[in-house]
């Protein structure tokens, strides 16, 4: 495997790791807030937790993906929210998976409605958070690599400007010469 391919897979693995970690955070706090009776920690006001944790997690996810394109950050938000909803579904189906309960229509209705609610609540917040985080990261916390790339870009732009200036000056000088000597006829 060459270095470029290795770097690509490494970036993908890091992306996946951040998405999974974010999903664990979002799902855990959603479950702890929404099913506080079963939780071993007191997360405080459930409403605030349900709204703020997905947003802040998305923000952190976006900041951590500053090196990637903004579309990647948005995609990470979508993946994170989807995975978080899947974790919530696993939690809700855990008695069934553990074999202590049998499925029924009431159980299915309860579970599906809660999973749907988690999707509705979590999805927009995580995605918006990740895009915002990507913007914040780009603005305030760029990585040294990104800084170097930006500097190189600026340098290149400067060089182009200089070249254009030189060209412009030369054309102006040629124009002045042209006023005294008419252009040759091309028959």
């Amino acid at each position: 495997m060459d270095e470029e391919t290795w770097a690509l897979w490494r970036r993908r693995a890091v992306f996946l790791a951040w998405v999974v970690v974010g999903a664990v955070i979002v799902a855990a706090f959603f479950v702890a807030a929404f099913f506080a009776d079963f939780s071993s920690i007191d997360v405080g006001d459930p409403g605030a937790v349900l709204l703020l944790v997905p947003l802040l997690t998305g923000l952190l996810l976006g900041i951590l993906l500053t090196d990637a394109e903004i579309v990647v950050a948005a995609g990470a938000g979508v993946a994170c929210a989807t995975l978080a909803a899947a974790f919530v579904a696993v939690f809700l189906f855990s008695p069934l998976l553990a074999g202590v309960a049998v499925g029924s229509n009431i159980f299915a209705a309860f579970t599906i409605s809660r999973v749907a609610l988690s999707v509705v609540l979590v999805f927009p917040l995580v995605v918006v958070g990740s895009v915002l985080g990507r913007g914040v990261g780009d603005m305030f916390l760029p990585s040294p690599r990104l800084k170097r790339q930006l500097e190189e870009l600026r340098e290149e732009t400067r060089r182009w400007h200089d070249a254009l200036d030189r060209l412009e000056r030369r054309q102006t000088a040629e124009g002045e010469v042209g006023e005294t000597e008419p252009p040759e006829r091309k028959d």
Binding site: V24, A27, A28, F29, V31, A32, F35, F38, S39, S40, I41, F87, V90, F91, S94, P95
Partner: peptide, 9 residues
């Protein structure tokens, strides 16, 4: 928290 809450549930 997720594991503990699931076990409790």
């Amino acid at each position: 928290v997720l594991v503990q809450t699931s076990l409790n549930y």
